[in-house]
Structures are given as structure tokens and as C-alpha cells.
């Protein structure tokens, strides 16, 4: 018997009835070292990108004018002074400036907003779609055929023409309804979400197919648990691990895909920074200005790592077999 069905089969043995399940989960979660540091890092990044642009003194979009332009462009980060005292730096621009004299730190902060928002939202959408379709297909045999055919169709569609069509059909209506930025955001999130759920769906379905033949499911069914109850209480908690992995990988994919979209001209206006785009633009000058690839690359990696550890912690905390070990 797995513990997932314990509360139902054996309620009186619960030691502290006043404590809910979620309190246990939280207890477990907060002592998970990885999860704790993941939360700290992710929280810091969130704080920086939300509050940062308000308190930071340089306008990330401003291009210096006139004679300032040549003085202020291609500035190095101040830490370069440690090994190269002749470097072109300015204390007002801690991470230097790009080839048009725009402040790098400011652009990283502003760019993070979009990258994180798109990354998280698109990941959630893709996860929701994938899990929903995967569970339905795995659990209900009648739906399996049709849903898997749909999955195959989406796997087979060529991404680029699909994006072109979506932009053609939905860009103008969306920007009318939600404003240019809002419309673009919805379009990007939907596009990334709708084109990346298939792997999750296939994985979840595979696991569900195996799970529903397990004894505890049989036991639950024999006491008359409804399919909805069954899915929410018995199936879902047991497919959480692959979903968590998909979530972590999904964020990275979404952040990178967003930059590919803007590069193709489907995304935010070309002068609007995002981490993916900052990284892409800097690749040509990687040897001259390593900081321009280092920082966006580092921020994307840190975000993904942090989410990964939070996911690990969550998974451990939600698994009653590990909880309290």
C-alpha cells in the first residue's frame, strides 16, 4: 500500500489531527537545503528585476547623444579594473555599456522582467496542457487514441510556419484588445506554451498507463472513488516528479524560444531587451566583451537552477514516503 491512500484507509492513526497535510509539506520543504537556497536565489532575482528598474539610476533604453555617444559606448564593467587598469570604465555604469552606449545592468534588470514572466507563464501553460492531456489520455482508454493523434500532429507541425501563421492571424486583434505590449506577451506565451506541451503529455501518459494498473489504484477504485477524485488524489501526486523535471527544463526552453521569436520578428520590439536576446546579440563580440554573454547566460542558468532546486524540494516535500525521513 502506498501512503497516498493512507488518509482514507487509516485516518484514526494520524498522530496530530490538528496539523494539516500542507503544514507537513511546508516543514519538509523549508529544511530542504537545495529548496531553501533555490528560493533565496530565485527571490533575489525576482526582487532585483521587479524593484531594480525603479531604483537603478540609468535608463536602460537611453542611447547617449552627441559627443557622449562615443565616450559612453563599449564601456567595460568596473571589475575589469582588477586586472586591466587601463580599461574604459565608469563607476556610474557598473556592468558597462553595449555598442550603442546603453547600460548593461539596466538592460539585464529590465530584460529579466520579460524573460522571467514569459518563462514562468509559458512553462505553466505548457505544463498544464501537457499534464491535462497526458492524464486524460493515460487514464481514459477511449480518449487515448484521439489525444495521442493530436499530440503527434503538434509534434509534426513545423514551428516556424506555424508561428508565421499565428502572428498573421492574431497579432493585430490581440494588440487591439490588450495593447501592443500586452498583446505581444499573450501571443508569445501562448505560442511557446502551445508548441511545447507534447513531451510532457507523452511522459505523463506513459506513467499514468503504468500507474493505473497498480494495486492502490485498484483498491481505491474498489471502494468507489470517482475518476476525478482518483486523478487528483492518487494519480497526479504520483506523476509529479517527471512534471517537475519538465517544468525546470520548460523554463529554460521558454526563455530561449522567446529570444528566437523576437529575432524572427514575432516578439517584442527590437530595442526591447530580454535575456535571451541580450545573449544572442552578444555572441558576435564574445571574445572582446565576455561580460555581455556572461551575465545574461549566468542569469538564465541561475534561474533554471533555482527553479530546479525548488522543484526538487517540492517533490520531496510532497512525497509522503520521503517526508519525515
Amino acid at each position: 500500500m502506498t501512503d497516498a491512500s493512507k488518509p482514507m484507509t487509516d485516518p484514526p492513526s494520524e498522530p496530530a489531527p490538528s496539523r494539516g497535510q500542507w503544514a507537513d509539506v511546508w516543514d519538509q520543504f523549508k529544511v530542504h537545503r537545495g529548496a531553501f537556497w533555490g528560493m533565496v536565489v530565485f527571490g533575489t532575482i525576482l526582487f532585483l528585476i521587479v524593484v531594480g528598474p525603479f531604483i537603478y539610476w540609468n535608463d536602460p533604453q537611453a542611447v547617449p547623444t552627441g559627443r557622449d555617444f562615443l565616450n559612453l559606448r563599449d564601456m567595460r564593467p568596473i571589475y575589469v579594473l582588477l586586472w586591466d587598469s587601463g580599461a574604459k570604465v565608469n563607476w556610474l555604469y557598473p556592468l558597462g555599456t553595449d555598442n550603442l552606449g546603453r547600460d548593461t545592468l539596466g538592460r539585464l534588470l529590465l530584460g529579466g522582467r520579460v524573460s522571467i514572466a514569459v518563462g514562468i507563464t509559458a512553462m505553466l501553460l505548457s505544463l498544464f496542457l501537457g499534464t491535462f492531456i497526458g492524464v486524460l489520455a493515460g487514464y481514459f482508454r477511449r480518449l487515448d487514441g484521439v489525444l495521442m493523434r493530436l499530440t503527434n500532429l503538434f509534434l509534426a507541425l513545423p514551428l516556424l510556419p506555424l508561428l508565421l501563421v499565428a502572428v498573421l492571424l492574431f497579432r493585430d486583434p490581440l494588440s487591439k484588445g490588450f495593447g501592443p505590449e500586452g498583446g505581444t506577451f499573450i501571443l508569445i506565451v501562448t505560442l511557446v506554451g502551445v508548441t511545447s506541451w507534447m513531451q510532457t503529455a507523452r511522459i505523463v501518459r506513459g506513467d499514468v498507463l503504468a500507474l493505473k494498473e497498480r494495486e492502490f489504484v485498484l483498491a481505491a477504485r474498489s471502494i468507489g472513488t470517482s475518476p476525478t477524485q482518483m486523478i487528483l488524489r492518487h494519480i497526479l501526486p504520483n506523476v509529479l516528479s517527471p512534471i517537475m523535471v519538465s517544468a525546470t527544463l520548460g523554463i529554460a526552453t521558454a526563455i530561449i524560444t522567446e529570444s528566437a521569436l523576437s529575432f524572427l520578428g514575432f516578439g517584442f520590439p527590437p530595442d526591447f531587451p530580454t535575456w535571451g536576446k541580450l545573449l544572442f546579440d552578444a555572441v558576435d563580440r564574445m571574445a572582446l566583451y565576455p561580460e555581455r554573454v556572461l551575465w545574461p547566460g549566468l542569469l538564465i542558468s541561475l534561474t533554471v537552477l533555482a527553479v530546479n532546486y525548488v522543484g526538487d524540494g517540492l517533490r520531496d516535500a510532497l512525497d509522503p514516503r520521503i517526508r519525515g525521513r
Binding site: T65, L100, P180, G265, P269, P270, D271
Partner: peptide
């Protein structure tokens, strides 16, 4: 069209036009 140099030009020209009170939205 999408092209690194053209996007730099867009950004610079947007700035120039901003100085004479013209607002510019960019699209690639």
C-alpha cells in the same frame, strides 16, 4: 527586416527622432 545592423540603426534613429519630439515604435 531582421538584421543586427538594421536593428542598431533603428535604435539610433529612434533616439535622433526622439530629440525632435517624434515618437517611434520599432518593428523587425
Amino acid at each position: 527586416s531582421t538584421n543586427a545592423v538594421r536593428q542598431d540603426f533603428q535604435t539610433l534613429i529612434k533616439q535622433f527622432w526622439g530629440e525632435i519630439g517624434v515618437e517611434t515604435e520599432l518593428r523587425n
